[in-house]
Design a protein around this nucleic acid. Structure first.
Lengths: 370, 370
DNA sequence: CTTCTTGCCGAAACCGGTTTCGGAACCGAG
DNA sequence: CTCGGTTCCGAAACCGGTTTCGGCAAGAAG
């Protein structure tokens, strides 16, 4: 055995030229064979693909990019500004996207921005540098400058959430309005007649939708809509606590509160506890999101959960389709959240919520993890 | 005013050739002028840079990449497997990295993996495709196969955390061992004599370090090390609750518990509450991480907080240096966590923790947000 | 047996940069 | 004036692919 030549680990990539030499073909021929051009005979095509497989050839994305203009990368810019820090689903979301992206041998480029203007600027930079072929836009707003930018520049994108003006927009969204509607109807079924609603930030597109869902639920339950029972702009525990407190100290407080966000619901827990109310008994709470803390809260929170990982995957798939030229109108999906019934809601208390009432049956009529 | 020619938005990128035409120079000259080659006269250099500025020229990263081999992108692969889902700092971490990266006009490529083998495979794919010039490795383990891969392939990388074999490794880390040591000494100063320790997962490099810090704190306080007072593998609330419960039901239970992770500390809260113990009074808890939930727990958790955003930025900077050829030995930083004293620790109870004791002074001798 | 297609592939230009090489112009020294 | 040495830039090769163009050969049509 000869002494091994050193530098074995520094194996050069196998290029298209290596393939061409190996097979005695022109490199253009190799390229066309691999890319499915019709002017290549079937036999040559298999010969090339087999050799490519055998030699472990993988085209260099950036070499392709300079000619084709495709960077083979999806873009995601996150708002990391103050108040946007709590993103319990980010890992799942990234994982969902990443899986879909890896499957196509693309990659995911992420950047962060401090505010709306910064988001737009960052996205512009990414498209100028051709680092990215399209964007996934999380947390859509009713009017969203990001969308204007991409529309104007003709950059493919897909929304996570809907928006005010759907022109040219593809999206994936969860029907939060239906969930909120169902939450109201569920509470009505449990005997509640005064049902409050605490919404999230109204700039986001989901907020008006969920309010509408709330109204729809009331209507289907033959309950009147009382503006005094609604609040909004509660996206943190603290804000939920404040708004919840406001509702609870009404002269005729609600016996149940629907929250548009789990975090706000956790705040309502606090507001209730401070007033000596037993959540799930004196006050019912149904919420939306399915954050992990909801399961370990006491009582465990009944909530409509969202499969964020799946959302990420679908968004990536839709964006691929968009990049490959599909019309946005055909790329719009809305799925529903699924109820996880736990311990935070129960039959309406017999007396109007207040100090002392009979220790009624401590709620049990629920399924678990529906 | 003439009618505007249409297709104004589809402005072509300005390329190096445009610059060359504009200035009447060869494109090679432009390139060398912009890249600081010494064989370009000062006057020409400023002429070129000014024109580049004026015309908004930005070199196309992938065109450069194919010749230079640099993709101008940093890689980060996240473990999204089961049990790794709770990453409260991910946004901050990404933001820290992203800022440093944007500043250099690079980008950040992130991918996810399901387990250790998948991580390595994903990283291998990213370097094969030359999508990435180096990696940031979060959550280092004592023996870490990711490091072996990158070492062997001579791919630059930097660790977030230290590791067993430091050969060729650059890193940024928080001195968790010092924090745990200080926690023990702080508790000793408050009069505690039996101080337990609940560690995290021992595969990670931080675990043995923090255990060592615990021992060091005991030694400096002239307290004996009692293995019966230590537990490990507690990285969730549930696990913290279990391990905490074990410690609390010892015949001679600790009056204070130091946790290597805030999540575990929150579990200890539960274990204590189930036994009717008042955290911060009957039982002191000091922890490490600084997760947001720690601030809103009751009592608010005294913990050593980590600036994850800054960590991300430093990691990126170190990686840049590494990619540009700096030796790894010079790229090793360790900073300390900072104490946020809150309400979960206080003077040792006068009687051995148990049922009824005097309602001693409800702790107040702490600073806030040190 | 020509001529016209058609199928299939080679050659070369191209994408937007970087890097090597060589030579023109200018310099001071002899 | 000649010569060797710098300074500075143009020309061209190169990186690893894609895409256009044109031509050869085989088969079909006349």
């Amino acid at each position: 055995m000869a002494i091994a030549q050193h530098k074995p680990a520094l194996k050069r990539r196998v290029t298209i030229n290596d393939l061409a030499d190996e097979l005695g073909l022109a490199k253009g021929t190799i390229s066309r064979a691999l890319n499915g051009y019709p002017d290549i005979s079937a036999s040559t095509r298999v010969r090339v693909t087999k050799a490519a497989e055998r030699m472990g050839y993988q085209p260099l994305a950036q070499a392709q990019a300079i000619r084709t203009g495709l960077a083979r990368s999806l873009g995601l810019v996150l708002n990391a500004g103050p108040g946007n820090t709590h993103k319990p689903f980010l890992t799942d979301f990234l994982d969902g996207i990443s899986r879909a992206v890896s499957k196509e041998n693309w990659s995911l480029t992420v950047a962060t921005a401090m505010d709306e203007a910064d988001e737009v600027a960052t996205m512009a930079r990414l498209v100028n540098e051709r680092k990215v072929d399209g964007f996934i836009l999380p947390r859509t707003k009713v009017v969203d400058p990001r969308i204007d930018l991409l529309r104007e520049r003709h950059v493919p994108f897909v929304l996570y959430g809907r928006t005010g003006d759907p022109t040219d927009c593809a999206w994936f969204d969860i029907a939060g309005e239906a969930a909120i509607r169902d939450a109201v109807m569920r509470l009505h079924g449990l005997g509640h007649r005064r049902i409050g609603f605490i919404n999230g930030a109204s700039v986001y597109n989901y907020a008006p939708l969920r309010l509408q869902g709330y109204k729809e639920g009331l209507a289907k339950s033959d309950l009147p809509f009382d503006p005094a029972l609604t609040r909004s702009e509660a996206i943190t525990v603290g804000q939920g606590e404040r708004k919840g407190g406001e509702l609870l100290q009404l002269q005729n407080p609600p016996t149940a509160i629907v929250c548009a966000l789990d975090l706000a619901a956790l705040g309502v827990y606090r507001a209730a506890q401070m007033r000596g109310l037993d959540v799930g008994h004196d006050l019912s709470v149904v919420s939306y999101d399915g954050i992990p803390e909801a399961a370990t809260a006491s009582p465990p929170l009944t909530t409509f959960a969202v499969d964020t990982r799946a959302a990420g995957s679908r968004l990536a798939s839709l964006l691929f389709a968009r990049i490959r030229g599909a019309a946005p109108e055909g790329l719009r999906e809305t799925v529903s959240a699924h109820l996880i019934a736990r311990g935070s809601d129960g039959p309406a208390p017999t007396k109007p919520t207040g100090g002392f009432e009979t220790p009624s049956n401590k709620n049990q009529p629920k399924g678990e993890n529906t």
